[in-house]
Amino acid sequence: MIQFPNAKINIGLQLVEKRPDGFHNLVSCFYPVNWTDALEILPTTGEAAFTLSGLAVPGAPTQNLCWKAYELLKNDFQLPAIQMHLHKVIPMGAGLGGGSADAAFTLKILNDLFALNLTPEHLENYARQLGSDCAFFVQNKPVLAVEKGDVFEPLTVDLKGWHIVLVYPNFGISTAEAYAGVLPQLPEKSLKTLLTQALNTFKDAVVNDFEASLFPKYPVLAEIKEQLYSLGAEYASMSGSGSTMYGLFKEAPVQPLPFPKDYSVWQGVL
């Protein structure tokens, strides 16, 4: 069985407080985007195996979230040995949730492949054990994410038909580095309220709090944001804790995109 784990963007990200467990409570809109990896899982009568292609993924295969997802379910179910192959396309350290998507899709494939009959809620509970935003990719629809980014509230944001340009500047930002520079604070207006307004009001109102500390450290990110606006974006922002920047457009940009060839640029329709 093969599926295509997709990326997500954050539309606004408010860091509201640091938790006693060391994590941060946040508020953000998670929105799925069709920039995808490819994941294939097959049962095997031989030894279990996990292979990779595409972008180089650091760490041992047994430390990959896909394999951890398999072992997590194997603790509770009598799963047979599998052959799993991940073709990695979504950049890492990019704020796009690619690794989390891979893990969540592993759970979903195993659930379907071996008729485990797990509900979406059960799958989300397993996904939360693998990472803060893994659970989002179980149902994979726009939500307001709160707490650690693993508790979801319904949201009526609908960007269907909008064009998106994602720009990854060929370097990642670790979660630890991003959070080291932030100072959580309660926002003047809740993101949920701001997101009920027209998208053309988002530019000055819907903010990713990571930008304040990461833009001075990585000025190229601010430059990309301004370039996206110069191309006609109605709204541009950093996704997650970076380093990907994105722009939302009513129509696809017609002029050549002004980004270096070593950047990864993806365009599509939401």
Rank of each mutant, 00 (worst) to 15 (best):
F4W: 07
I9K: 01
I11S: 04
L13I: 10
Q14Y: 00
Q14S: 14
K18S: 05
N25Q: 11
F30M: 11
Y31A: 00
P32D: 05
N34K: 15
L42G: 01
A48G: 14
W67T: 07
W67G: 02
N75V: 14
Q78W: 04
Q78K: 14
M92D: 06
G97P: 06
G99S: 04
I109L: 15
L110G: 09
L116R: 07
P120N: 11
L123H: 09
L123S: 13
N125F: 03
R128V: 11
G131W: 12
G131Y: 13
S132Q: 06
K141H: 07
V143H: 02
L144W: 00
V157M: 11
H163R: 01
P169V: 10
F171C: 04
I173N: 00
V182H: 02
K189R: 14
S190D: 07
L191Y: 03
T196N: 14
D204K: 14
V206K: 01
V206A: 00
V207T: 09
N208C: 03
S213M: 06
F215T: 06
Y218I: 10
Y218P: 05
V220Y: 07
K225Y: 12
A233H: 09
G240W: 02
F249A: 12
Q255S: 15
Q255F: 08
P258D: 07
Y263I: 08
S264W: 10
V269W: 03
